[in-house]
């Protein structure tokens, strides 16, 4: 074959070789088929551990009780027993060391998430103790009269 035909061929072969060589360095060692098969298990294995190490933000009632035993016990004895502390107080990651004051939410809108009346027959929402927002102390904060840790207590 003539030289002008061979020359681009050598360039092409060289490029392919270069790509294959650089692939050896770029692709991580643990990248390949793991798990079920190629279709579902083709991935970088160490990514699983990376997801497991993702930081947890909601630490749960067990971590709150370590310091706020009185409040947690009051809550546990109340009708709000199933409401997680962090639903109102915010995620407790870093508290109290880096995050001394949690962003406590005492807005009317937070209480209304459950306690605004919606008479829905196929949902437990209709069963909850509820108010019609515009007819019940429109401009007041709920916490002026109700204690979220024990809603039956009258704080007036």
């Amino acid at each position: 074959m003539k030289w002008h035909v061979l020359r681009p061929l050598w360039v092409a072969i060289g490029l392919i070789g270069l790509i294959l060589l650089s692939r050896q360095f770029i692709v991580p060692d643990d990248f390949g088929v793991h798990g079920k098969n190629f279709t579902y298990g083709y991935h970088r294995l160490s990514n699983i551990q990376e997801w497991k190490d993702f930081p947890v933000k909601y630490l749960g009632r067990e971590s709150c009780i370590e310091c706020h035993e009185e409040n947690v016990q009051m809550l546990n004895a109340s009708t709000h027993v199933n409401v997680e502390c962090e639903n109102c107080h915010g995620p407790s990651i870093g508290h109290p060391d880096d995050n001394e004051f949690l962003p406590l939410n005492t807005t009317r809108e937070l209480c209304l998430r459950c306690h605004a009346r919606l008479d829905y027959p196929n949902s437990d929402r209709g069963e909850l103790l509820s108010i019609v927002d515009r007819r019940h102390k429109r401009r007041s904060k709920c916490t002026r009269c109700h204690n979220p840790h024990d809603p039956t207590e009258d704080m007036r």
């Binding site: 947890v56 909601y58 995620p91 949902s123 437990d124």
Partner: peptide, 19 residues
Amino acid sequence: DTTKCVGCGLCVKACKNEN
């Protein structure tokens, strides 16, 4: 359990903060 859901949306809030 869709019969128990009351539509408070606290799960969505928690998910967004957590993740």
